[in-house]
Design a protein around this nucleic acid. Structure first.
Lengths: 158, 158
DNA sequence: GGTGATAGCTATCATCTGACAGGAAAAGTA
DNA sequence: TACTTTTCCTGTCAGATGATAGCTATCACC
C-alpha cells in the first residue's frame, strides 16, 4: 500500500501538470501569447536568474544546446528576451527578461493562484505540500542524473 | 507570498512530471517498451477500468476520439490492449489490458516506488501530500472544464 | 424503410520537442 | 602561430500530440 502510494504521487503530479498545460493551451483565459511549455520553463529561469548565460539556462531547463537555442530565438523574436554579449567573454550571451515577459509571468502567476483559490486554503497544508514536492523534485532529479551518468540500468528491487 | 506559493505548486508538479517523463524516456532502466506519456495514461485508465468503452477512456484521458484511436491502435498492435465488441451495442468496443500490459504497469509502479525510496519516508507526509494533490487535481479539472464550456474568459482578480 | 444521432476509425496537417551533425566565433594554450 | 576547447548557432530529421474533415457501422426513433 505504501508502495502504491509512491507511484500515485507521480501520477498526480503528472495529472496536475497536464491540466496546467491544457489550461495554458486554451488561449482564451491566458493572454500569454502562445508560450509553449518549454517557453515557460525558459522564461521562469531567465526571470529568476537575469543575466544568465545560454548554457546555464539550457542546463537548468534540461535542454540540449540546439533545442534551447531554438526556443530562445522564438522568445527573442517575440520580444520576451533581451540578449547582450558578455563583456568579459564574447562567446557568452547574457539573457534578460523584457518587461513584457515579466508581465506575462505575472499573469501566469495570477492565473494559477486563481485556479487554486478555494481548492487549497490551509496555509500549513500548502507549506507542507510544497516542502514535500520540493524534496521529491530534488531527489528525483538527483537520481535521474545518476542514472544518466552511469551505464548501469535502474536499480531493481527484485 | 501565499499567492506565490500557489503558483509554485504548479511549477513543482510540472517539474516532477518532467523528471518522470525524462526517466521514462531513458529506456535503459525502464523496459516499458516505449510507452509514450499518452500510452501510460491510456493504459492506467484501461487497467483500472477494464471493459471500458473507447469513448469513456478518451474522455478520461482528455483526448479527442481521433487521437485516442491512434494511441489505442498502437497499443493494440504492440499487444497491450485486447479489444472486444460490446454484445449489447455493436458500435462500442470493450477494452481490456493484456497480461503484458499489466506486467509493464507493475514495472512502472516499482520504478517509481524505487525512485522515491529515501526521498519520502514519513507515511503521514505521504498521506497528506497525496490528499492535497488529489484535491488540487479534482479542483483544477473542474475549473478547466468550466472554462472550456463557458465562453467567458478566465476569472481575473483585478 | 428513412432519418438522424452515436461510436469508432482513417487520413491529413501543424506544432512542439528531442536528437544529431556540424559550423562560426571567441578563448585558452602550446 | 597552430591546436583545442567552449559557447552558441543553424539545419535537419523523427516522433508525439492536438486538431479537423470525413468515412462506415450501428442504434434509436418515426
Amino acid at each position: 500500500m505504501d508502495e502504491a502510494q509512491k507511484s500515485r504521487l507521480f501520477e498526480l503530479a503528472d495529472l496536475i501538470a497536464a491540466v496546467g498545460r491544457q489550461i495554458h493551451a486554451s488561449k482564451e483565459g491566458m493572454t500569454t501569447e502562445s508560450w509553449t511549455a518549454l517557453d515557460i520553463a525558459v522564461m521562469r529561469y531567465i526571470d529568476r536568474n537575469p543575466g544568465t548565460s545560454a548554457r546555464a539556462a539550457a542546463d537548468a531547463t534540461q535542454q540540449i544546446s540546439s533545442n534551447f537555442s531554438r526556443a530562445l530565438r522564438g522568445l527573442e523574436r517575440k520580444g520576451f528576451v533581451h540578449r547582450e554579449t558578455d563583456q568579459e567573454d564574447a562567446r557568452r550571451v547574457r539573457l534578460y527578461p523584457t518587461a513584457r515577459a515579466q508581465e506575462n509571468l505575472r499573469r501566469l502567476h495570477d492565473l494559477w493562484s486563481d485556479l487554486l483559490d478555494g481548492v487549497v486554503s490551509d496555509q500549513d497544508e500548502v507549506d507542507a505540500t510544497i516542502a514535500t514536492l520540493r524534496r521529491m523534485e530534488a531527489g528525483l532529479a538527483e537520481k535521474a542524473r545518476k542514472w544518466r551518468d552511469s551505464p548501469e540500468p535502474a536499480p531493481r528491487k527484485a
